[in-house]
Design a binder for these strands. Sequence first.
DNA 1: TATATCATTGAAGCATACTTTAAAGTCAAG
DNA 2: CTTGACTTTAAAGTATGCTTCAATGATATA
Lengths: 144, 144
Amino acid sequence: MYTIREVSEMFGIPATTLRYYDKEGLLPYVGRKDSGYREFSDHDIQMLRVIECLKKSGMSIKEIRQFADWVQMGDVSLKERLEMFQNRKRAVEQQMEELKKTMDLIDYKCWYYETALAAGTEAVHSQNKSEHDRTPECEILLKQ
Amino acid sequence: MYTIREVSEMFGIPATTLRYYDKEGLLPYVGRKDSGYREFSDHDIQMLRVIECLKKSGMSIKEIRQFADWVQMGDVSLKERLEMFQNRKRAVEQQMEELKKTMDLIDYKCWYYETALAAGTEAVHSQNKSEHDRTPECEILLKQ
DNA sequence: TATATCATTGAAGCATACTTTAAAGTCAAG
DNA sequence: CTTGACTTTAAAGTATGCTTCAATGATATA
């Protein structure tokens, strides 16, 4: 069993945020001591790991709450939960594709500014179009 | 030259958002007709592509505005702009690593719910720990 | 047992990135 | 030359995800 502060430090999430998640129904199994203090179990730690994962996959608090509700419903919601993770898989695959394209443009811009800096002026990229003959992929990049 | 509507449809960005970007200083070169209507040039289209890229790399409007300011300053800011894109490169590399870890947990959860659904109950994953002997990577996943 | 640190709550506040509204002017087809 | 669709603005509003506040109670250590 862990205090809210221990969990906070474990995840690098502010205690206020953990209380917010609890209030929003994302942590339905967090227990309480007689004093009213929250008691986080290993199960709650697991749940938090999944919450972090779902957040990184692009889900909103509301959508994660739906998942938490399904968890509470037990085996009747197994299908929904499977479908949710399958959808998340697709979403993350798309995000990865997007990031690759983003990286391509960034790589081009790094090259663009490296050569411009070496030349002392950005004009090297507009004055003679011949550079594109040497690096045709840049044109493709800029057209996408 | 393009109207705001044409650019909006070109990028799938609402015209209101384009006006917002303009107001925030992200599109410093957008011209105007005599009527006051915005005129987007190919240069502005390029800028928008870069803005989209920087957004996807995790930059805020404020930070992108800084970049737009550097662009306006000309060659004196070449170093800053190069460093910015180099930083973006690192940021996107980190995001990719994060996404991979996220995907690992999602893949585990897909397997978890596929087998649970096949068994008709989630209990297959708690009743006999022997499953972990067959799939030790799952333990690693859950511990990370 | 004092006291510093930690926890609780509901409610209000905040930052970001838009989005909507309202009133007014422009454009283009018939 | 009208009419309907498009554009302009400033300002207010919205959604999301926290974060802060203020008042109050719990815990731990010297």
